[in-house]
Each structure stands twice: as C-alpha cells, then as structure tokens.
Design a protein around this nucleic acid. Structure first.
Lengths: 339, 339
DNA sequence: GTGAAAGCGCTAACAC
DNA sequence: GTGTTAGCGCTTTCAC
C-alpha cells in the first residue's frame, strides 16, 4: 500500500517514505531551494503525484513567516470604482502568486471597523491594502497596527502610510473649468459620501470656481445609490438657475439626469450634467455622459506594487498616478442663452 | 523590561512570562477552552494588552486544522451579478468570523484555470465557492479535488457538488411569455456568454416560444461589455421583423437599446427590450428597463450557508431559491400594429 | 485549575 | 547532495 494514513491528506513524511528519501529532500524538491539528484528528484515527483500530495499552506506560513495572502479592506466592494480597483489588485497579486481577501467595513462605527480589522488581523496575511475612498476606509486605516505592512488607495494625498493616489482634485478642476468655459455662470455639485471633510473632487470643483470668481453654490449630498441622485435631480429641476451640474460619480449623474428629465428639464439643452469615473455604461447613456476617466484597475496594480515593497521592507515613497482624463460626450453643452 | 524579544512581534511565551503563568494557561484564556482562575485570567489579559499580543494565525491554523478562510473562484468579479453575489458571501462569512478570498479565473483555458485553482489550493482555506456563471467557472469547478469542501453557485441545477441556484429558466420563460402576451409574434434573444452549451435564460426563452408555437429566431451572442450589445442593437435595427428582444442581462440590454436607438428604432414604440438582473441603473434608464429581479446577495448567503455545512461534514442537499421576479417597467410594450 | 511534554507539517541549519 | 536535528507558535493530551 502506498497510502500511509487512512483517510487523512498525505503529509510530507508520507511522500518521503514512498520515495525512499528524507523529509528535507522532499522539501528541497518542493521549494527548489537546494540541488537534489535527478534520480531522487524523479522519485519524489512520482510519489507526490501518486499521493496527490499538496504541502500544507498553514505549516509553510508558520515556518517561513511569509503568508501569501494580502487583505483588502473597503467600505464597499460592488460599486464600480471599488470593484475595478479590487480587480486590479487581484490581477497583479494572482500573477505574483498571492491570494487576496476582501473584507468590507460596513460603517465608520467602532464596532464595524473593529470587526473588519480584527478579522483580517486574525488571519495569516502578508499585508493590507485599504481603500480609503470613504469614512469606513479611513476609520479602518487608523485601526491597523503600524507594524503591519499597509498601503492605502485614495483620491487625495496623505502621509500615514504609502499610498497610491488618483489626482482627483486636478481632474475635477479641469472638468469644472470646461463647464465654465462652455459659458455656464457657475457649476452645481452633487457629492458622493466623502472620505474626509472634503474629497478631491469637491476640492477641485471649488478651487476652479474660486479661481474664476464664479459663485460657489451649496453642495447637494447624495449617497451611493443612483436613486439618491434621482431625488436630487428632481429638486434641481425646480431651480431655473441651475444650468450645469458636476456629479461625484457616474451612477449618481445618471440618477440626476433621470430626476432632471422627470422634472421637465432637458439634458443638455436645459442643464448640462457631468459625472466622474467613466463607468462602462456612461457611453451607453442617453445622452452619453461627459465624465472623467479614472484608471481604477491601474490604481489597484500600483497599490499592490507598493505593498510588495513594504512587505519586503524596501523603502518606498508616495506614488502618484497620471491625472485622470476628461471625456467629453453629449450630456454637456453651452447654456441656452449662449446658443 | 516587559518586551522580551527585540523588535519581533510578541509570542505566547512572552505573555506567559510576563503574566507569570505557563504557556498553556495563556492559550486557555485565549480560546476559552478550559477554566482559568479569575486572578490568572486577569494577569494574562493585562499582559496581552501590554504587549499588544495577537496570536499567530498561521500557528493556529496549523495546529487546529481549521483555517478561517473561504475562497471564491469566479470568472469575473466586477460585473453586477458577480459583485453582488460576492458581497453576499462576504457579508455572511464576516458575520461568522471567516475571511473570504477572491480569485479570478481569466478564461477556461487550461493554464488560467490551473493558475487560479492552484493559487487557492496552496493556501490554508476551509472551503471553496465557485461562481459557475460562465465557462471559466465551470472549468475551475472540475479542477478542484473532490476532498476539498466545495459549493457552486449557478443558474441551473447540476449534481457535481452542492449548489445554490437561481431558477433562471423559469424566470426567462415568464419574461418571454409576458412579451408574447403583449402581442409580439416572437421574441429575439441576445445571449451573454453561457456557462455551458446553454444557460437557464436561453433554455427558458426557447421553451416559452416552443410552447406557444412561436418561431424561434437565431440567437445573437454578446459579450459582457455593454458595447457588444450596442453593436447587436444596431444590427437588429435593420430588421423590421424584430419587435421584441430579451437580453441575457441588463447591461447588454442597455447597449442594445442604445444601438437600436442609434439605428433609428424607438424603444418601446418600435421594439420592446427586456433585460435580466435588475441592475441598480435599470430603473434610471430611459426608458426604464423591464427586467427580472435576481437576489444575488441572497444567493451568496445561501451558498455560504451550504459551504459551512459541507465543511462541518453535515449532509446537505441541493438548495433552490425562490424564483426571480418579473419587474415590468417602460422598455416593453405591445407591438405597433396592436395599438 | 495548572504545568510539563508532545506534537501539528513543514523549512532552516548543520553536519557528513 | 543528503540525512539528522531543531525549531516556527500555537493547542492538546496528560499528569498532578
């Protein structure tokens, strides 16, 4: 009989026995850490195949002190930007032989943050990437012990840990300038839940307005659900002075357009609406949505790259992406009076 | 000095020393497995806090043989249905103290499948959930050794492993019947990449047509990107006999509507278009999309529940969800001649 | 209740 | 090259 232990998964000792070599020799062919004679190599290989042996990841992680898992902490996983960023992280990690875990931080409340962070800390992980796009993400970052390799992803620079950033503020400013250049007196802003007091999109929008001496209208706060944008759109439809709206993301922009339309205002004839992100459906929308293209997957990739350096204890510095780019489609136009 | 080992994370022995107890006693207060006197309990607790001690997950996984991680294998992670299903899995797992990993199976090619499955198998995991929505998912499922606790999620029943299913075929049939009842002579079908020769949506559509002796038009194959739906929509726009289109998912339906519109056909005046999934943007679309609501998150939750039973070696049987429900909105109407 | 001793399955160190 | 000896940091007997 070749199966040494009834019903239990084979261990390295079983392989060694079957191949007629010592345990470390099996380990050597497994890791390739040292030379093994071709003959024994083959015997070991055969034994492994025969027993369907797979080394225990738990034992390896214990002895080598290098778990092959990285954790992602995020306030959300299914909205477009989040999902794409995670996709970018996973893709790079997989190519590198790392598995990635995702855990969502339901809210910035102590209990939720603690649950999520503890869950991650209680597993054998190599490092953590936190998506600091919203308050839960920010709260989570602050709860992570400083001795754990950590990287954050954000729309604004900060110095807590190395981070991959998107130059959101610059892009928002560019978008606002574009709208102003079209002839709009000012630009209204519908914000998605910000990560701090104010996120990059809002900052850039305000800066552009102030730089041109345009009035700074009160901000409308939306949630993550497009439905919340619709309600805001309906409200905006009742205010004739609103001719241009810059939204925190495309999904909200789509809701806003819907609400505006329901309220009797045509887009872009009566009011121009712009989004942010370049959601896959933005081009399908009617009218096709003017927006800002963000390379979320690339952001994830860069964050992963940063993390591997931190894990390897190399010195790293803050990273910065190329600026997101303006994509002009048909949901924006010059105001009525100007045409 | 209370820190026993310079620069290294504290281990259980450090805690024991500081608290003046034995290592097993510390372990006992950690796990709560056995009684410890209140006094020592407190000393241990204090030592843990002082040292910021966290037990090594790797060591625990090794000795207890019960990793607290479950893996999800999927052909995709960011499209709506996938992302929502994963969200459901993660939510239940987190509540249960399990971490979830995600790994993408890029294609059904041997190399991609092998990379993904090996990655997962090389880590300390308790079990696997595979999203069998597409060919990569199906291929991955077949590569998983049978001794690993595994559950699949799918739109059609099969018997390989326990699975959480959505009664897609029934819902598709209901949708097709609804369209036929409106007075359409037949219903065209735009398919998303199927998991097997034919998935539940296509099967249900065909069954409904056959049952009513309606002609069964040739199927149009779309990809996952809405853009591919748009191309199909343009093509469909050139064929006057097309008056009703049932699409494999909402994103494709939105693309099809766009293409149809660009081709000069009005929706629903000239042609009715229905989707599948009830994407968050479906209600925002113009016209608001008629679709089928699927409870993806619930599906994920049920799959997780199944997996925990398999892990615990309880006997389980196939699960089945309530049937998805029809959501009639404004993208469908009676054909022109009937009005 | 509590400590000593014995592993979990693997890799690292060290001879030969 | 290869085997022997030691652990990795915990939990689990098993005495007392």
């Amino acid at each position: 009989m070749s199966v040494a232990r009834e019903n239990k998964p084979p261990v390295i000792a079983d392989v060694a026995r079957l191949a007629g070599v010592s345990v470390p020799t099996v380990s050597r062919v497994l890791t390739g850490a040292a030379k093994v004679s071709p003959e024994k190599q083959k015997r070991v290989q055969d034994a492994i195949a025969e027993l369907h042996f797979r080394p225990s990841a738990a034992a390896r992680a214990l002895v080598s002190r290098q778990p092959r898992i990285i954790a992602v902490l995020a306030g959300n996983t299914s909205r477009y930007g989040y999902a794409e960023t995670i996709r970018g992280i996973e893709e790079s990690a997989r190519a590198d032989g790392y598995l990635v875990t995702i855990t969502v931080v339901e809210s910035a409340e102590h209990d939720d943050v603690d649950t999520a962070v503890s869950l991650v800390l209680d597993q054998p992980i190599a490092g953590i990437i936190v998506l600091k796009f919203d308050p839960p993400g920010v709260a989570a970052l602050h709860k992570i012990p400083t001795d754990i390799p950590t990287v954050s992803i954000s729309g604004v620079r900060e110095n807590l840990v190395p981070q991959a950033v998107l130059a959101e503020a610059d892009a928002a400013r560019e978008m606002t300038d574009y709208l102003l250049d079209l002839g709009h007196r000012t630009v209204h802003h519908v914000r998605v839940p910000p990560s701090r007091r104010e996120d990059g999109r809002t900052t850039g929008w305000r800066a552009a307005l102030l730089a041109r001496d345009a009035p700074v209208p009160e901000i409308s706060d939306a949630g993550w659900d497009p439905e919340s944008g619709r309600a805001i759109g309906r409200e905006l439809a009742t205010r004739p002075e609103v001719t241009a709206v810059f939204c925190g993301n495309d999904e909200i922009a789509m809701g806003v357009i819907r609400g505006l339309t329901e309220g009797g205002r045509a887009v872009p004839a009566d009011v121009s609406v712009a989004g942010f992100d370049d959601h896959p459906l933005a081009a399908m929308w009617s009218p096709p949505l003017t927006t800002v293209r963000q390379d979320f997957a690339g952001l994830g990739t860069r964050a992963y790259g940063l993390l591997t350096k931190v894990v390897a204890r190399e010195t790293v510095r803050k990273y910065s992406s190329e600026r997101p780019s303006l994509v002009v489609r048909e949901s924006t136009a010059a105001p009525r009076g100007d045409r």
